[in-house]
Simulated assay, not measured.
Amino acid sequence: MTPLDTPAAPRDEAPARAPVLTIPADAPFFIVMNAGSGRKQSAETRAILDRELGAAGRRYELRLVDDPADLSATARRAVADAIAQNGVVVGAGGDGTLCAVAAATLGSGCPYAVLPRGTFNYFSRDHGIPADLEASTRLLLTARAYPVQVGVVNGRMFLVNASLGLYPKLLEDREVYKRQFGRSRLIALFSAMATLLRRHRHLRLHIDHDGERREIRTSTLFVGNNRLQLEQIGMKEAPLLEQGLLAAIAPRALGRLAQIALTLRGAAGRLSDADNVVSFTFRRITVTHPGKRRRRVKIATDGEVTWLNMPLEFHVAPEPLFLLKPEPDIAQANRS
C-alpha cells in the first residue's frame, strides 16, 4: 500500500468537541421509516414500538415513507416537529435511509437516533447500537446523545462512505440482484464478482490536499467515514477516523482478474498488505478530472447513487450529528 500523505499531522484544525446531551425523560420520538423494505417489516416495527415505548409511557409518531423521493421531505418535517416539541428524530432502515434522515437533522441541534433495519448496518454497528429491533428500541429510552463525525461531498452528507468510479456501479448492480434474489451478504458478494468480471473504465484524477496536487489513475476512489468497515477490509487508517479525519482509498489501475484478487483480499481483511492501493487520511480534499473540470460524475453516498459536478469537495462536516448511542464502554463491547 502506498500512502499519499502522512496522516499524523494534518494542517486543518480538528473541530472542537461538542458536549454529550442528556435526553429529557418525556421527549417524544419522531420516527421516519422507509416502507420500501416491506409491509411485514413495517408492521413488525410498529408492534415493537408499541410494546417497548408504550410500556414506558413514551410518545412516538411513526412516519412511513412509501416513495423514496419523499424521504428527505418527510425527514425535514420530522425535524421541525422534534425541535418544536423538544423531541428526538429517529431513522429506521438501512444505511441509505439513516443517512437521508440524518442529513435533515444535521445542524439543527436536534438529537438523532437509529433503528437499524438494513443488510449491513455499518453505521449502527460501528456505534455499538444493537441490530435487534427490541434492543435498539429500548436503547432510545436510556441513551445519551454523543457527537459523531459525518462526511460531506459537494454539500451531500454521508455517514459511512462516498465513492466514485467502479464502486457506484457495484452498488447499482447489487440492487438489481437483490430485487431478483433477495437481500443477503452472499448475494451482494456474488453481484460484486459478476460486475468485476465485466470491462470497466479507469479514472484519471487530480487530488488537491494540503496545498499539494497528486495524480492517480484508478478504477474507483473510496472515501470512508466508518471505522468498522475500514477495519473489516484491513485498512490501517481505521483508528484515525476518531481524530476527526476521513480515509481515502484508491486501487491503482488494474485488469479484471487483478481487481477481483484485490477485492477478495479486502474481503479477507488484508487490503493494507496490497502494494497497488493508494490510501491516506484527510479533513478536506478537492478532486478534479484533468481537462474536464466541470465534468459530471456518478457518486455513491451510503449506498445511494446520484450525479454531481466536478470539482468534488470532500470534507469533514464542521458540526457533528448528536447520536443516541450506548455509553462508550458498552458501545465498544457491542461493535461487531
Score class of each variant (00 low, 15 high):
184 S>P: 08
270 R>G: 05
271 L>C: 07
18 A>D: 08
153 V>C: 06
192 A>N: 10
43 A>M: 13
231 E>C: 07
166 L>H: 00
264 L>D: 02
288 T>F: 03
288 T>R: 09
44 E>C: 03
243 Q>T: 04
21 L>H: 03
85 Q>F: 12
336 S>A: 15
131 A>E: 15
332 Q>G: 12
33 M>N: 06
224 G>C: 10
133 L>A: 07
126 D>L: 04
128 G>N: 09
215 E>P: 10
2 T>M: 14
164 L>Y: 06
156 R>P: 11
276 N>P: 04
127 H>M: 11
171 L>W: 00
119 T>Q: 06
151 G>Y: 00
198 R>H: 14
336 S>V: 15
323 L>R: 00
79 V>Q: 02
332 Q>V: 14
250 A>Y: 13
44 E>V: 04
105 T>Q: 04
123 F>Y: 11
285 I>D: 01
174 R>V: 09
175 E>M: 12
167 Y>L: 07
199 R>E: 10
258 A>K: 11
292 K>D: 15
201 R>C: 14
325 K>A: 15
232 Q>P: 03
233 I>E: 04
19 P>I: 00
282 F>W: 01
332 Q>S: 14
167 Y>G: 04
63 R>L: 11
144 R>Q: 14
133 L>V: 12
286 T>K: 11
263 T>S: 10
269 G>C: 01
289 H>F: 13
186 L>F: 04
111 P>N: 09
309 N>V: 13
129 I>V: 08
281 T>A: 12
70 D>H: 13
67 D>V: 08
105 T>A: 12
183 R>Q: 15
205 L>N: 01
321 L>E: 00
198 R>V: 11
294 R>W: 13
305 V>E: 10
88 V>Q: 10
249 I>G: 01
197 L>N: 11
41 Q>I: 06
25 A>W: 05
169 K>Y: 05
228 L>I: 10
107 G>T: 05
265 R>N: 08
44 E>M: 09
17 R>M: 13
156 R>E: 14
308 L>R: 00
316 V>K: 02
315 H>Q: 15
4 L>V: 05
110 C>H: 07
193 M>F: 15
42 S>P: 02
1 M>V: 03
110 C>A: 11
164 L>D: 02
208 D>R: 08
46 R>T: 06
310 M>D: 10
64 L>S: 09
184 S>Q: 03
90 V>K: 06
306 T>F: 15
76 R>T: 13
36 G>R: 05
120 F>N: 10
227 R>E: 14
279 S>W: 01
125 R>V: 09
263 T>K: 04
141 L>D: 03
84 A>C: 11
326 P>D: 01
336 S>I: 14
187 I>Y: 08
153 V>D: 03
32 V>M: 02
64 L>M: 11
208 D>A: 09
111 P>W: 07
188 A>V: 08
206 H>F: 12
78 A>H: 05
66 D>N: 12
169 K>D: 13
129 I>S: 05
272 S>H: 09
51 R>M: 09
69 A>T: 07
245 L>K: 04
323 L>W: 00
241 L>E: 08
284 R>M: 05
324 L>R: 01
72 S>C: 04
